[in-house]
Design a protein around this nucleic acid. Sequence first.
DNA 1: TTGTAAGCGTTATCAT
DNA 2: ATGATAACGCTTACAA
Lengths: 357, 357
Amino acid sequence: MPQRRLPRDPGPPAASAPSCGRATIADVARAAGVHASTVSRALNPATRGMVTEAVVERVAQAAAALGWRPSALAAGLRTRRSRTIGILVPDLVNPIFPPIVRAAETLLAAQGYATLVANTDNDPAREEMLISRMAEHLVDGLMMASAAEGTHAIELCARFGIPAVLINRRLPGASTSAVTNDDRHGIGLAVAHLVGLGHRRIAHLAGPPGVSTAIDRREGFLEALRAAGLEPAAMVDAAGYTRAAGQAAMRALLAGPGFTALVVANDMLCLGVYDVLQGSGLRAGADLSVTGFNDMPFVDLIDPPLTTIRIQHAAMGREAAEALLAEIAEPAAPRRDTRLVPELVIRASTRAPKQDH
Amino acid sequence: MPQRRLPRDPGPPAASAPSCGRATIADVARAAGVHASTVSRALNPATRGMVTEAVVERVAQAAAALGWRPSALAAGLRTRRSRTIGILVPDLVNPIFPPIVRAAETLLAAQGYATLVANTDNDPAREEMLISRMAEHLVDGLMMASAAEGTHAIELCARFGIPAVLINRRLPGASTSAVTNDDRHGIGLAVAHLVGLGHRRIAHLAGPPGVSTAIDRREGFLEALRAAGLEPAAMVDAAGYTRAAGQAAMRALLAGPGFTALVVANDMLCLGVYDVLQGSGLRAGADLSVTGFNDMPFVDLIDPPLTTIRIQHAAMGREAAEALLAEIAEPAAPRRDTRLVPELVIRASTRAPKQDH
DNA sequence: TTGTAAGCGTTATCAT
DNA sequence: ATGATAACGCTTACAA
């Protein structure tokens, strides 16, 4: 006998398997002979205390028997939290991001969160669209790696009321928590290393203007040089943190005054530097000392292996996730500005200069 | 005057901004002077046709004015689709996965989907937990890269009714759609290249037993060798697709009969091969020709640059996403088994053998 | 400690 | 073409 479907037939009070699809909390309640709200309390670790041991047991058994799984959507609709965190990166293919995302995801998963990942392509419009979409999905928080300049990401998050944490780069006036590297210190390690090797004519291939990592590393470079009583031999800005931009900047540097060592703002740029060096019949290490920044995967395998500043990729993802969860748990808590301390990794791209000047 | 909170005060019928939090469809309805269901129809592209042009316009304006954003949770609860897709990878840090995930995410984002990413660590228990969690979040589909052996992933997806697509590896008896490489063909390209260079004593460093990529590449190796009228000089299985496993297998190979060329099952293993070679004072290319598989990022920069089989990383992610969306749209459609055709990339790790045997 | 009932924001069915 | 209403599955303030 066909029945009107919408007004769900309450059916016989006896325990019965769900007619179709997944079991709901009501099915479990029926099977356990208690009310749905009791099931909810028994199954939720936070409220389990309100329920008698025996009932908890009975409910758990019924739930297991029916293969009940909570609906994150239904719960989220009610509680206004989705147990979901969003991560925005410019481009997951850039090798510095996977370790960060991976570490964050692992920590978040352990805390019961699912992780949404999206690529912004450094495109503010796209970023805006992605943040809106994540807001629609009611993400509990957002981690943003290397937000592009001129982004409205922070304002958007604020408007949507989404707690956010910045990774890798800070943003000029933002009062958002951030987990970054101590870039000034890091670049100082490179300079000190080169000075220790006997270099006196040291140049800097800087990152793109306006980006916090570039600014801090440039300043750190100048500061460290000054501390050693030296002047920069040359300075050129790259147009972006890309291999191609590294090539262009390196060509510009070679057209200028001479230098025996080059402090580069990041490893990706170094790939471009190596390209140009190879094209000029020069060799990193032997003819020119080169240092990078990031110690991204496999720069230990390129030829010659790159001396660089190792950042704590995984710690960055972990700390950012922790900061975010803390902020979600206690929205009023003060923001954190965490600086991770990088270390120098010496490989074959740096040696003493051929001749002293 | 304090009021009871839960029974939401309907308030004056006049258009009024939402008291707090985001505007709902009811707020928009009030502002536009129509019923909520009309708003829903007007705002949903699929049902917009049911509503008068003028009303659509009025509703759209009201929605914009109130800054209304749809709630994916509420919609999902009702429609049983979350517009969310899950991607499972063993380890995002393995460089072959980011390009795949990135391409998939980009395509999915364009189709209005959000992408959940998680790392399984090749741990079946963890994988099971992650799939369950994604099921709780009601993912509309799941993409699984390199499912571990002995996994119950497929059964789980079936139980939860989640459409799934395999990437990179197939699974023995699975009738799931899969997007993989034509591994037999690919490895054949490597063999043909080496034979063409004059090699006659060719060995194979195979992948871990039981994995489809390893099996297909091993068979493809033997087949291509036979086609050239040759016998394998040696064959050793690696314990996994890791650098360490590559080292171990390479040591085993060096302990056996001699060979002038080595076909390795993947690039990551090649890193281990290079390590051992370096430790033995040998050089890839000069002393032993070596080929890899995957053309993962930066193997063009290692020393010597690796001759390898380039797979279509991005296409893999794209095709898999497309296949998944197709399956979601038409669950009854037949499964697809897509093989992407790889190509040979010749670099400095292969040359003619020093002397002919 | 447990039951009752309302409500989270949508969509879909029915009636008009 | 639009309105009324129930339902999606869960949580929680309140009552008992």
